[in-house]
Design a binder for these strands. Structure first.
Lengths: 217, 217
DNA sequence: GATCAATAATAGATTATCTATAATAATGCC
DNA sequence: GGCATTATTATAGATAATCTATTATTGATC
Protein backbone atom coordinates (compact mmCIF):
# COMPACT_ATOMS: atom_id res chain seq x y z
CA UNK A 1 0.00 0.00 0.00
CA UNK A 2 2.92 2.24 0.78
CA UNK A 3 5.02 1.95 -2.32
CA UNK A 4 2.46 1.76 -5.04
CA UNK A 5 4.89 0.39 -7.60
CA UNK A 6 5.48 -2.75 -5.57
CA UNK A 7 1.80 -3.45 -5.20
CA UNK A 8 0.32 -6.47 -6.87
CA UNK A 9 -0.17 -5.39 -10.45
CA UNK A 10 0.28 -8.82 -11.93
CA UNK A 11 -3.37 -9.48 -12.56
CA UNK A 12 -5.54 -7.41 -14.84
CA UNK A 13 -8.25 -7.31 -12.17
CA UNK A 14 -5.81 -5.70 -9.73
CA UNK A 15 -4.82 -3.05 -12.27
CA UNK A 16 -8.44 -2.25 -13.09
CA UNK A 17 -9.31 -2.04 -9.39
CA UNK A 18 -6.40 0.34 -8.77
CA UNK A 19 -7.30 2.57 -11.71
CA UNK A 20 -10.95 2.74 -10.71
CA UNK A 21 -10.02 3.38 -7.06
CA UNK A 22 -7.83 6.30 -8.14
CA UNK A 23 -10.69 7.74 -10.20
CA UNK A 24 -13.15 7.37 -7.32
CA UNK A 25 -10.75 8.90 -4.79
CA UNK A 26 -9.88 11.82 -7.05
CA UNK A 27 -13.56 12.49 -7.72
CA UNK A 28 -13.35 11.78 -11.45
CA UNK A 29 -16.05 9.19 -10.80
CA UNK A 30 -18.88 10.86 -8.89
CA UNK A 31 -20.71 9.43 -5.87
CA UNK A 32 -23.75 7.44 -6.91
CA UNK A 33 -22.48 7.02 -10.47
CA UNK A 34 -23.19 3.63 -12.03
CA UNK A 35 -20.25 1.53 -13.12
CA UNK A 36 -21.34 -0.57 -16.08
CA UNK A 37 -19.22 -3.67 -16.37
CA UNK A 38 -19.28 -3.90 -20.17
CA UNK A 39 -18.45 -0.23 -20.56
CA UNK A 40 -15.51 -0.47 -18.15
CA UNK A 41 -14.38 -3.68 -19.81
CA UNK A 42 -14.28 -1.83 -23.13
CA UNK A 43 -12.44 1.13 -21.61
CA UNK A 44 -9.71 -1.19 -20.31
CA UNK A 45 -9.82 -3.38 -23.43
CA UNK A 46 -10.70 -6.30 -21.17
CA UNK A 47 -13.55 -8.74 -20.73
CA UNK A 48 -16.17 -8.52 -18.00
CA UNK A 49 -14.53 -11.20 -15.86
CA UNK A 50 -11.58 -9.19 -14.45
CA UNK A 51 -13.89 -6.16 -14.21
CA UNK A 52 -16.20 -8.09 -11.90
CA UNK A 53 -13.22 -9.17 -9.81
CA UNK A 54 -12.13 -5.54 -9.57
CA UNK A 55 -15.64 -4.65 -8.36
CA UNK A 56 -15.33 -7.16 -5.52
CA UNK A 57 -12.04 -5.56 -4.43
CA UNK A 58 -13.50 -2.06 -4.53
CA UNK A 59 -16.57 -3.27 -2.64
CA UNK A 60 -14.34 -4.59 0.14
CA UNK A 61 -12.66 -1.18 0.34
CA UNK A 62 -16.03 0.55 0.61
CA UNK A 63 -15.48 2.55 -2.57
CA UNK A 64 -18.45 1.04 -4.41
CA UNK A 65 -21.71 -0.55 -3.37
CA UNK A 66 -23.35 -3.46 -5.15
CA UNK A 67 -27.10 -3.59 -5.64
CA UNK A 68 -27.96 -7.17 -6.54
CA UNK A 69 -29.00 -7.57 -10.17
CA UNK A 70 -28.57 -3.82 -10.61
CA UNK A 71 -24.83 -3.58 -10.73
CA UNK A 72 -22.45 -1.41 -8.77
CA UNK A 73 -22.29 2.32 -8.17
CA UNK A 74 -19.74 4.61 -6.60
CA UNK A 75 -20.36 4.78 -2.84
CA UNK A 76 -22.13 7.92 -1.68
CA UNK A 77 -20.43 10.42 0.59
CA UNK A 78 -22.11 11.60 3.74
CA UNK A 79 -20.83 13.45 6.79
CA UNK A 80 -21.61 10.56 9.13
CA UNK A 81 -19.36 8.28 7.07
CA UNK A 82 -16.59 10.88 7.18
CA UNK A 83 -16.71 10.95 10.98
CA UNK A 84 -16.97 7.17 11.23
CA UNK A 85 -13.84 6.72 9.12
CA UNK A 86 -12.03 9.35 11.21
CA UNK A 87 -12.99 7.59 14.45
CA UNK A 88 -11.79 4.20 13.20
CA UNK A 89 -8.60 5.76 11.81
CA UNK A 90 -7.92 7.50 15.13
CA UNK A 91 -8.31 4.20 17.01
CA UNK A 92 -6.18 2.15 14.65
CA UNK A 93 -3.43 4.70 14.06
CA UNK A 94 -3.19 5.11 17.83
CA UNK A 95 -2.79 1.35 18.19
CA UNK A 96 -0.21 1.23 15.41
CA UNK A 97 1.78 4.12 16.85
CA UNK A 98 1.87 2.51 20.29
CA UNK A 99 3.44 -0.59 18.75
CA UNK A 100 5.67 1.39 16.40
CA UNK A 101 7.37 3.80 18.81
CA UNK A 102 9.62 1.20 20.46
CA UNK A 103 10.61 -0.06 17.01
CA UNK A 104 11.22 3.27 15.29
CA UNK A 105 14.62 3.45 13.63
CA UNK A 106 16.53 6.63 12.88
CA UNK A 107 15.57 6.26 9.23
CA UNK A 108 11.87 6.20 10.15
CA UNK A 109 12.24 9.46 12.08
CA UNK A 110 14.11 10.96 9.14
CA UNK A 111 11.24 9.99 6.87
CA UNK A 112 8.77 11.57 9.31
CA UNK A 113 10.77 14.83 9.47
CA UNK A 114 11.05 14.90 5.70
CA UNK A 115 7.30 14.33 5.28
CA UNK A 116 6.57 17.03 7.81
CA UNK A 117 8.69 19.50 5.81
CA UNK A 118 6.97 18.40 2.61
CA UNK A 119 3.57 19.37 4.00
CA UNK A 120 4.65 22.99 4.25
CA UNK A 121 3.65 25.36 1.51
CA UNK A 122 1.75 22.84 -0.58
CA UNK A 123 -0.93 24.67 -2.57
CA UNK A 124 -2.35 21.63 -4.35
CA UNK A 125 -4.62 19.44 -2.21
CA UNK A 126 -3.24 16.29 -3.83
CA UNK A 127 0.35 17.23 -2.99
CA UNK A 128 -0.53 18.03 0.61
CA UNK A 129 -2.50 14.78 0.94
CA UNK A 130 0.47 12.73 -0.29
CA UNK A 131 2.86 14.43 2.16
CA UNK A 132 0.37 14.15 5.02
CA UNK A 133 -0.15 10.47 4.30
CA UNK A 134 3.61 9.94 4.14
CA UNK A 135 3.95 11.48 7.59
CA UNK A 136 1.25 9.27 9.11
CA UNK A 137 2.63 6.14 7.43
CA UNK A 138 6.20 6.90 8.47
CA UNK A 139 5.27 6.71 12.15
CA UNK A 140 2.64 3.93 12.01
CA UNK A 141 3.81 1.30 9.47
CA UNK A 142 6.92 0.41 11.53
CA UNK A 143 4.52 -1.28 13.97
CA UNK A 144 5.05 -4.31 11.75
CA UNK A 145 1.44 -5.49 11.98
CA UNK A 146 0.37 -6.30 8.41
CA UNK A 147 -3.39 -6.48 8.95
CA UNK A 148 -3.37 -3.22 10.86
CA UNK A 149 -1.26 -1.46 8.23
CA UNK A 150 -3.54 -2.68 5.45
CA UNK A 151 -6.64 -1.52 7.31
CA UNK A 152 -5.13 1.91 7.94
CA UNK A 153 -4.08 2.23 4.29
CA UNK A 154 -7.67 1.49 3.24
CA UNK A 155 -8.99 4.14 5.61
CA UNK A 156 -6.43 6.66 4.32
CA UNK A 157 -7.70 6.07 0.81
CA UNK A 158 -11.24 6.84 1.92
CA UNK A 159 -10.09 9.87 3.93
CA UNK A 160 -8.33 11.18 0.83
CA UNK A 161 -11.57 10.77 -1.09
CA UNK A 162 -13.40 12.79 1.54
CA UNK A 163 -10.70 15.46 1.38
CA UNK A 164 -10.76 15.77 -2.42
CA UNK A 165 -14.55 15.85 -2.45
CA UNK A 166 -14.70 18.60 0.16
CA UNK A 167 -11.95 21.02 -0.63
CA UNK A 168 -11.64 22.20 -4.19
CA UNK A 169 -8.18 22.88 -5.52
CA UNK A 170 -8.64 26.64 -5.56
CA UNK A 171 -9.87 27.39 -2.06
CA UNK A 172 -7.58 24.85 -0.41
CA UNK A 173 -5.75 26.17 2.64
CA UNK A 174 -3.37 23.66 4.23
CA UNK A 175 -3.85 22.86 7.88
CA UNK A 176 -1.27 24.07 10.32
CA UNK A 177 1.59 21.62 10.78
CA UNK A 178 1.78 22.35 14.54
CA UNK A 179 -0.03 19.13 15.39
CA UNK A 180 2.32 17.00 13.29
CA UNK A 181 5.28 18.76 14.92
CA UNK A 182 3.93 18.12 18.43
CA UNK A 183 3.35 14.44 17.65
CA UNK A 184 6.87 14.04 16.29
CA UNK A 185 8.34 15.81 19.32
CA UNK A 186 6.54 13.43 21.69
CA UNK A 187 7.75 10.45 19.65
CA UNK A 188 11.34 11.69 19.71
CA UNK A 189 11.06 12.09 23.50
CA UNK A 190 9.68 8.52 23.65
CA UNK A 191 6.56 9.83 25.40
CA UNK A 192 4.34 7.12 23.97
CA UNK A 193 1.10 8.01 25.75
CA UNK A 194 1.39 11.67 24.82
CA UNK A 195 2.19 10.89 21.19
CA UNK A 196 -0.69 8.42 20.89
CA UNK A 197 -3.11 10.88 22.50
CA UNK A 198 -1.99 13.72 20.21
CA UNK A 199 -2.24 11.55 17.07
CA UNK A 200 -5.72 10.35 17.98
CA UNK A 201 -6.96 13.91 18.65
CA UNK A 202 -5.30 15.13 15.45
CA UNK A 203 -7.08 12.56 13.28
CA UNK A 204 -10.43 13.22 14.97
CA UNK A 205 -10.11 16.99 14.58
CA UNK A 206 -9.23 16.66 10.90
CA UNK A 207 -12.31 14.45 10.55
CA UNK A 208 -14.50 17.00 12.24
CA UNK A 209 -13.23 19.74 9.93
CA UNK A 210 -13.96 17.58 6.88
CA UNK A 211 -17.42 16.57 8.07
CA UNK A 212 -18.29 20.20 8.84
CA UNK A 213 -17.13 21.28 5.38
CA UNK A 214 -19.20 18.53 3.76
CA UNK A 215 -22.29 19.61 5.73
CA UNK A 216 -21.98 23.12 4.32
CA UNK A 217 -21.95 21.97 0.70
CA UNK B 1 -23.17 -10.02 9.18
CA UNK B 2 -25.35 -10.42 12.22
CA UNK B 3 -28.32 -12.31 10.91
CA UNK B 4 -26.82 -14.62 8.37
CA UNK B 5 -30.11 -15.29 6.64
CA UNK B 6 -30.50 -11.66 5.65
CA UNK B 7 -27.04 -11.48 4.20
CA UNK B 8 -26.61 -10.97 0.52
CA UNK B 9 -27.10 -14.42 -0.93
CA UNK B 10 -28.46 -13.25 -4.23
CA UNK B 11 -25.32 -13.81 -6.21
CA UNK B 12 -23.69 -17.18 -6.69
CA UNK B 13 -20.30 -15.65 -5.88
CA UNK B 14 -21.59 -14.50 -2.48
CA UNK B 15 -22.93 -17.97 -1.69
CA UNK B 16 -19.67 -19.63 -2.71
CA UNK B 17 -17.67 -17.14 -0.63
CA UNK B 18 -19.86 -17.81 2.41
CA UNK B 19 -19.62 -21.56 2.05
CA UNK B 20 -15.84 -21.47 1.65
CA UNK B 21 -15.51 -19.02 4.56
CA UNK B 22 -17.47 -21.41 6.77
CA UNK B 23 -15.22 -24.29 5.76
CA UNK B 24 -12.07 -22.27 6.41
CA UNK B 25 -13.32 -21.02 9.79
CA UNK B 26 -14.43 -24.49 10.90
CA UNK B 27 -11.09 -25.96 9.87
CA UNK B 28 -12.52 -28.25 7.21
CA UNK B 29 -10.15 -26.48 4.83
CA UNK B 30 -6.67 -26.56 6.32
CA UNK B 31 -4.21 -23.64 6.48
CA UNK B 32 -1.97 -23.54 3.44
CA UNK B 33 -4.31 -25.77 1.42
CA UNK B 34 -4.62 -24.85 -2.23
CA UNK B 35 -8.03 -23.86 -3.55
CA UNK B 36 -8.21 -24.86 -7.20
CA UNK B 37 -10.76 -22.75 -9.02
CA UNK B 38 -11.90 -25.45 -11.46
CA UNK B 39 -12.27 -28.00 -8.68
CA UNK B 40 -14.34 -25.60 -6.56
CA UNK B 41 -16.39 -24.59 -9.59
CA UNK B 42 -17.22 -28.26 -10.12
CA UNK B 43 -18.08 -28.78 -6.47
CA UNK B 44 -20.56 -25.89 -6.58
CA UNK B 45 -21.73 -26.81 -10.10
CA UNK B 46 -20.64 -23.37 -11.23
CA UNK B 47 -18.18 -21.87 -13.67
CA UNK B 48 -14.85 -20.38 -12.69
CA UNK B 49 -16.11 -16.78 -12.89
CA UNK B 50 -18.15 -16.61 -9.66
CA UNK B 51 -15.46 -18.73 -7.98
CA UNK B 52 -12.85 -16.10 -8.77
CA UNK B 53 -15.17 -13.40 -7.42
CA UNK B 54 -15.59 -15.41 -4.23
CA UNK B 55 -11.78 -15.61 -3.94
CA UNK B 56 -11.56 -11.80 -4.03
CA UNK B 57 -14.07 -11.54 -1.17
CA UNK B 58 -12.22 -14.11 0.92
CA UNK B 59 -8.93 -12.37 0.17
CA UNK B 60 -10.35 -9.10 1.52
CA UNK B 61 -11.37 -10.93 4.70
CA UNK B 62 -7.88 -12.34 5.10
CA UNK B 63 -9.10 -15.94 4.90
CA UNK B 64 -7.11 -16.77 1.76
CA UNK B 65 -3.95 -15.40 0.17
CA UNK B 66 -3.37 -15.11 -3.55
CA UNK B 67 -0.02 -15.93 -5.10
CA UNK B 68 -0.04 -14.42 -8.59
CA UNK B 69 -0.20 -17.05 -11.31
CA UNK B 70 -0.16 -19.73 -8.63
CA UNK B 71 -3.69 -19.44 -7.37
CA UNK B 72 -5.04 -19.02 -3.87
CA UNK B 73 -4.45 -20.95 -0.69
CA UNK B 74 -6.04 -20.90 2.74
CA UNK B 75 -4.28 -18.28 4.89
CA UNK B 76 -1.80 -19.72 7.37
CA UNK B 77 -2.34 -19.39 11.09
CA UNK B 78 0.41 -18.07 13.30
CA UNK B 79 0.41 -16.80 16.88
CA UNK B 80 1.46 -13.29 15.83
CA UNK B 81 -1.64 -13.02 13.63
CA UNK B 82 -3.83 -14.21 16.50
CA UNK B 83 -2.52 -11.46 18.75
CA UNK B 84 -2.76 -8.85 16.00
CA UNK B 85 -6.41 -9.68 15.39
CA UNK B 86 -7.07 -9.57 19.13
CA UNK B 87 -5.44 -6.14 19.43
CA UNK B 88 -7.44 -4.71 16.54
CA UNK B 89 -10.64 -6.29 17.88
CA UNK B 90 -9.99 -4.83 21.33
CA UNK B 91 -9.54 -1.35 19.86
CA UNK B 92 -12.56 -1.47 17.59
CA UNK B 93 -14.95 -3.17 20.02
CA UNK B 94 -13.96 -0.58 22.62
CA UNK B 95 -14.77 2.20 20.15
CA UNK B 96 -18.08 0.57 19.22
CA UNK B 97 -19.08 0.04 22.84
CA UNK B 98 -18.31 3.68 23.69
CA UNK B 99 -20.72 4.77 20.97
CA UNK B 100 -23.26 2.06 21.74
CA UNK B 101 -23.75 2.52 25.48
CA UNK B 102 -25.74 5.78 25.24
CA UNK B 103 -27.93 4.18 22.55
CA UNK B 104 -28.55 0.81 24.23
CA UNK B 105 -32.24 -0.04 24.44
CA UNK B 106 -33.80 -2.40 26.98
CA UNK B 107 -34.09 -5.01 24.24
CA UNK B 108 -30.33 -4.82 23.60
CA UNK B 109 -29.60 -5.45 27.27
CA UNK B 110 -32.05 -8.35 27.24
CA UNK B 111 -30.20 -9.84 24.29
CA UNK B 112 -26.90 -9.39 26.14
CA UNK B 113 -28.23 -11.11 29.29
CA UNK B 114 -29.66 -13.93 27.20
CA UNK B 115 -26.37 -14.41 25.36
CA UNK B 116 -24.48 -14.39 28.66
CA UNK B 117 -26.73 -17.17 29.97
CA UNK B 118 -26.29 -19.11 26.74
CA UNK B 119 -22.52 -19.19 27.23
CA UNK B 120 -22.91 -21.19 30.41
CA UNK B 121 -22.47 -24.93 30.26
CA UNK B 122 -21.71 -25.15 26.55
CA UNK B 123 -19.55 -28.20 25.91
CA UNK B 124 -19.21 -27.76 22.14
CA UNK B 125 -16.75 -25.06 21.07
CA UNK B 126 -18.99 -24.02 18.20
CA UNK B 127 -21.97 -23.49 20.52
CA UNK B 128 -19.91 -21.44 22.95
CA UNK B 129 -18.43 -19.38 20.10
CA UNK B 130 -21.89 -18.52 18.77
CA UNK B 131 -23.13 -17.46 22.22
CA UNK B 132 -19.95 -15.51 22.94
CA UNK B 133 -20.22 -13.72 19.59
CA UNK B 134 -23.88 -12.95 20.27
CA UNK B 135 -22.89 -11.32 23.56
CA UNK B 136 -20.23 -9.14 21.97
CA UNK B 137 -22.50 -8.17 19.09
CA UNK B 138 -25.42 -7.36 21.37
CA UNK B 139 -23.44 -4.64 23.09
CA UNK B 140 -21.41 -3.29 20.12
CA UNK B 141 -23.67 -3.32 17.04
CA UNK B 142 -26.10 -0.76 18.53
CA UNK B 143 -23.33 1.83 17.96
CA UNK B 144 -24.97 2.21 14.55
CA UNK B 145 -21.67 2.61 12.70
CA UNK B 146 -21.88 0.31 9.67
CA UNK B 147 -18.20 0.27 8.67
CA UNK B 148 -17.18 -0.41 12.24
CA UNK B 149 -19.70 -3.20 12.66
CA UNK B 150 -18.61 -4.82 9.40
CA UNK B 151 -14.94 -4.63 10.41
CA UNK B 152 -15.67 -6.17 13.81
CA UNK B 153 -17.74 -8.94 12.23
CA UNK B 154 -14.81 -9.79 9.94
CA UNK B 155 -12.44 -9.93 12.90
CA UNK B 156 -14.88 -12.14 14.82
CA UNK B 157 -14.86 -14.56 11.90
CA UNK B 158 -11.08 -14.75 12.05
CA UNK B 159 -11.10 -15.06 15.84
CA UNK B 160 -13.52 -17.96 15.54
CA UNK B 161 -11.12 -19.60 13.09
CA UNK B 162 -8.29 -19.21 15.59
CA UNK B 163 -10.49 -20.67 18.32
CA UNK B 164 -11.57 -23.72 16.31
CA UNK B 165 -8.01 -24.34 15.16
CA UNK B 166 -6.66 -24.19 18.70
CA UNK B 167 -9.12 -25.95 20.89
CA UNK B 168 -10.30 -29.34 19.80
CA UNK B 169 -13.86 -30.29 20.60
CA UNK B 170 -12.86 -32.82 23.23
CA UNK B 171 -10.54 -30.86 25.48
CA UNK B 172 -12.56 -27.65 25.25
CA UNK B 173 -13.15 -25.97 28.60
CA UNK B 174 -15.27 -22.83 28.41
CA UNK B 175 -13.82 -19.64 29.83
CA UNK B 176 -15.33 -18.24 32.96
CA UNK B 177 -18.21 -15.87 32.28
CA UNK B 178 -17.12 -13.52 35.08
CA UNK B 179 -15.63 -11.05 32.63
CA UNK B 180 -18.80 -10.90 30.53
CA UNK B 181 -20.81 -10.38 33.72
CA UNK B 182 -18.55 -7.53 34.88
CA UNK B 183 -18.79 -5.83 31.48
CA UNK B 184 -22.58 -6.07 31.50
CA UNK B 185 -22.75 -4.75 35.05
CA UNK B 186 -20.68 -1.68 34.11
CA UNK B 187 -22.88 -1.08 31.07
CA UNK B 188 -26.05 -1.33 33.14
CA UNK B 189 -24.57 1.20 35.58
CA UNK B 190 -23.73 3.42 32.56
CA UNK B 191 -20.07 3.41 33.62
CA UNK B 192 -18.83 3.79 30.05
CA UNK B 193 -15.10 4.08 30.77
CA UNK B 194 -15.12 1.03 33.04
CA UNK B 195 -17.12 -1.04 30.57
CA UNK B 196 -14.87 -0.08 27.67
CA UNK B 197 -11.74 -0.84 29.68
CA UNK B 198 -13.09 -4.22 30.80
CA UNK B 199 -14.15 -5.19 27.28
CA UNK B 200 -10.77 -4.25 25.82
CA UNK B 201 -8.86 -6.23 28.47
CA UNK B 202 -11.24 -9.18 28.04
CA UNK B 203 -10.62 -9.39 24.28
CA UNK B 204 -6.85 -9.04 24.72
CA UNK B 205 -6.72 -11.74 27.40
CA UNK B 206 -8.73 -14.14 25.27
CA UNK B 207 -6.28 -13.40 22.45
CA UNK B 208 -3.32 -14.14 24.69
CA UNK B 209 -4.83 -17.44 25.76
CA UNK B 210 -5.41 -18.43 22.13
CA UNK B 211 -1.94 -17.39 20.99
CA UNK B 212 -0.37 -19.31 23.87
CA UNK B 213 -2.37 -22.41 23.01
CA UNK B 214 -1.32 -22.13 19.36
CA UNK B 215 2.35 -21.82 20.35
CA UNK B 216 2.14 -25.11 22.24
CA UNK B 217 0.81 -27.05 19.24
C1' DG C 1 23.94 -36.39 -8.91
C1' DA C 2 23.07 -31.75 -10.66
C1' DT C 3 21.45 -29.02 -14.87
C1' DC C 4 18.71 -27.90 -18.38
C1' DA C 5 15.15 -28.74 -21.84
C1' DA C 6 10.56 -30.84 -22.92
C1' DT C 7 6.09 -31.65 -21.13
C1' DA C 8 2.00 -31.21 -18.32
C1' DA C 9 -1.03 -28.66 -15.36
C1' DT C 10 -3.43 -24.70 -14.33
C1' DA C 11 -4.18 -19.66 -13.40
C1' DG C 12 -5.71 -15.90 -15.83
C1' DA C 13 -8.19 -14.14 -19.50
C1' DT C 14 -11.20 -13.91 -23.83
C1' DT C 15 -15.26 -14.55 -26.52
C1' DA C 16 -19.78 -15.81 -27.56
C1' DT C 17 -23.89 -17.04 -25.65
C1' DC C 18 -27.70 -17.56 -22.34
C1' DT C 19 -31.06 -16.38 -18.64
C1' DA C 20 -33.25 -13.50 -15.26
C1' DT C 21 -34.29 -9.17 -13.66
C1' DA C 22 -35.07 -4.19 -13.55
C1' DA C 23 -36.19 -0.15 -16.08
C1' DT C 24 -38.61 1.71 -19.83
C1' DA C 25 -41.94 2.04 -23.50
C1' DA C 26 -46.25 0.81 -25.37
C1' DT C 27 -50.81 -0.73 -24.97
C1' DG C 28 -55.46 -1.26 -23.36
C1' DC C 29 -58.90 0.21 -20.15
C1' DC C 30 -62.02 3.06 -17.39
C1' DG D 1 -56.80 12.09 -20.59
C1' DG D 2 -54.77 9.70 -16.89
C1' DC D 3 -53.51 5.23 -15.00
C1' DA D 4 -52.54 0.43 -14.43
C1' DT D 5 -50.90 -3.43 -16.97
C1' DT D 6 -48.36 -5.62 -20.25
C1' DA D 7 -44.47 -5.94 -23.90
C1' DT D 8 -39.83 -4.51 -24.83
C1' DT D 9 -35.18 -3.55 -23.99
C1' DA D 10 -30.92 -3.22 -21.51
C1' DT D 11 -27.89 -5.31 -18.69
C1' DA D 12 -26.27 -7.98 -14.62
C1' DG D 13 -25.07 -12.46 -13.68
C1' DA D 14 -23.59 -16.72 -15.27
C1' DT D 15 -22.02 -20.56 -18.56
C1' DA D 16 -18.96 -22.98 -21.72
C1' DA D 17 -15.40 -23.51 -24.80
C1' DT D 18 -11.09 -21.89 -25.83
C1' DC D 19 -6.51 -19.58 -25.52
C1' DT D 20 -2.12 -17.99 -23.56
C1' DA D 21 1.41 -17.57 -20.17
C1' DT D 22 3.53 -19.27 -16.29
C1' DT D 23 4.62 -22.57 -12.90
C1' DA D 24 5.68 -27.24 -11.74
C1' DT D 25 7.18 -31.70 -13.13
C1' DT D 26 9.37 -35.06 -15.67
C1' DG D 27 13.05 -36.87 -18.35
C1' DA D 28 17.30 -36.70 -20.75
C1' DT D 29 22.01 -35.34 -20.82
C1' DC D 30 26.52 -34.43 -19.13
Amino acid sequence: MLDESTEDDRSLAARIARALAAQIVSGALKPGERLRQDQIAQAFKASHVPVREAFRRLEAQGLVVTEPRRGVRVARLDPSDVMEVAEIRASLEALALRHAVPKLAASDLDRARQALENCIGKTEVADWEAANRAFHESITTPCGLPRLNAAIADLHRTSARHLFATWQTLDWQPRSDDEHRAILKAIEAKQVDTAVELLSKHVLEAGHALAAALEKQ
